[in-house]
Write a protein that binds this DNA or RNA. Structure first.
Lengths: 337, 337
DNA sequence: CTGAAAGCGCTTACAG
DNA sequence: CTGAAAGCGCTTACAG
């Protein structure tokens, strides 16, 4: 007994194939008697509706495509898990495609995804070519960029308020009395990297401070470690480093300790994201939290809304985060919040 | 222009719909002239074959279902990424279902998966009811348990040689001169937790040593931390702790440090997995490596083989790992490898 | 409420 | 090599 079909169930239950279909279609009408007979027969045969056939005729696959570049940064597995849970609760599932972090790579993968007739696409930490963005729109499949902004492509974006957040993190450092503040920035090829750097610069300018150093850490642990070593090895070293994300900040802390410097004491380190590891004692990282839960909710809201509405339009959502105080950075006198 | 179909391409190219299909079906025959006309028309229209329709008629969806319980333990995101990459290279994709770590929860999710006509299922770190295992077999869909063994259910298993590995890790500790060795075990409801504990016990017995303590850490960070505090707070404390996996070992190290103990100096800590974080300086964890790459390869081999073969049978693969020496545990004199 | 029938977009024998 | 036709397993008007 390989695949059981609705026709077989119908035969056994003594009803038409349409009746079986109705029993398994939410909202369709069937008498209590029919429902009972069909459910009974279905159970005996071990029948489940074929989701693929259903998708073909209804035009809705209830599959959402997720494109991710790398899961090394703990922020993404966390987001993936939340996304999957929330989507499952709504009867959707995630078809996962890993992609190289290049526009061509992502484009190829998104095309594949479109072939699967996904109802929507979430692209995490990657960008699409504008050509592909147009194709997706033509195919009427909603795309939302998660944790990445891309203006003008007609795509929806969900990010935290990166510029604000970075500004506030930097202000925290300034108020803490630091005045040799360096920034190991997020990848400048990504909106998050640029926006956070802009926020840093804004706060420094407002305080009349020049950055001690400002380099691109590429969202890479080894690169960030190397940057930290360079910055903190000279005759004069910074008294604080604002790092473009937690993943790099962990590397920076490791590098600093390797130099004999104690974060939170000799030098302050602040990250961005607040991944679970940031709270672990080994790092105890002060960081600006990106509210993953709310980012996930917003992403799903947009998707669901666009799937339902005939005339979808791109939305840009920025969610405010908050600074989480821990031990890796000196806390200003009387600092609240 | 919403969805472009093969019929539209056929009309434009001046050939039959079947011809279009053949051009896009690997291995089907079409003249160079036809191929050219069709490709041209397809490009103009932005046509891609509908994978769902293809799956329906061919009976192969080229989708593999992945069931995961939790992504907190870094071992799983790493495995997920490798799995996805390797599968993509073969033209398959991962439909991800998150499941509560209970048999009922997993069963429900696997049923959903079967509804999607997946070509195979990978269940990572979860178990299936034997009832469901039978249903999967009846439906002829191969299931492989990743990092979990379950005998007698007729399912394939891929694990590392957990018992051996744990024995070797424990022997390493014994040869290092430790004699008050505790074990904070992996969850005893899981084969990995039990097998590693068995390996620990085996080595201890062989050396004529009684465990200083042996408790179930449930693969949970907070539980493991609490265990470590209890074990290391008395008047006599262990000189070594073998921990059931890295994820717990990080918590154990944090707890120990909180007690003023320095891992690798005052007390040795050995983990199991060798996740990337184990190599980071903040933990510098000596651990027994589970070869993820080879586990992934084996998983995919089994799946591909069973998808192709008419009469598939369950396979059980155990892959040998190796001890990775770092700073969290004292190294025996003259220890090699 | 229910059944017969059309159709979703493909692949694949079957003739030619 | 190529086209006409059947069929994959469903949902959904359409009559009754």
């Amino acid at each position: 007994m390989n695949k059981v079909t609705s026709a077989e169930v119908a035969a056994r239950a003594g009803v038409s194939q349409s009746a079986v279909s109705r029993v398994f279609t939410p909202g369709a009408s069937a008498s209590a008697k029919t429902v009972k007979k069909v459910k009974q027969a279905a159970k005996e045969l071990g029948y489940r509706p074929n989701s693929l056939a259903r998708a073909m005729v209804s035009g809705k696959s209830r599959i959402i495509g997720l494109v991710v570049a790398y899961l090394e940064n703990q922020f993404y597995p966390v987001a993936l898990e939340r996304l999957s849970n929330a989507l499952q609760a709504k009867g959707y599932h995630l078809l996962v495609f890993t992609a190289p972090n290049s526009t061509e790579g992502v484009d190829k993968v998104v095309e594949d995804l479109m072939g699967y007739q996904v109802d929507g696409i979430i692209a995490a930490s990657v960008s699409l070519s504008s050509d592909l963005a147009e194709r997706a729109q033509a195919a009427e499949i909603p795309v939302v960029l998660f944790n990445r902004a891309q203006k003008g492509a007609g795509l929806s974006n969900v990010t935290s308020a990166n510029r604000n957040g970075a500004r506030r993190a930097t202000e925290f450092l300034i108020e803490g009395g630091h005045n040799r503040i360096a920034h190991i920035a997020g990848w400048q090829g990504a909106s998050t990297g640029r926006d956070r750097q802009a926020g840093f610069t804004e706060a420094m300018d407002a305080a009349g401070l020049a950055p001690f150093a400002m380099v691109d850490g590429m969202y890479s642990r080894p690169v960030a470690m190397e940057c930290a070593r360079q910055i903190a090895s000279g005759s004069q070293i910074p008294d604080a480093i604002f790092v473009g994300n937690d993943h790099m900040a962990f590397g920076v802390i490791d590098a600093l300790r390797g130099l004999g410097l104690i974060p939170g004491q000799d030098i302050s380190v602040v990250g961005y994201d607040d991944v679970p590891l940031a709270a672990w004692e080994a790092y105890d990282l002060t960081t600006f939290r990106q509210p993953v839960n709310r980012m996930v909710e917003a992403t799903i809201d947009i998707l669901m809304h666009q799937i339902d509405s005939a005339e979808p339009h791109a939305e840009t959502i920025e969610i405010e985060g908050k600074l989480i105080l821990r031990g890796s950075a000196r806390i200003p006198q009387g600092w609240t919040t």
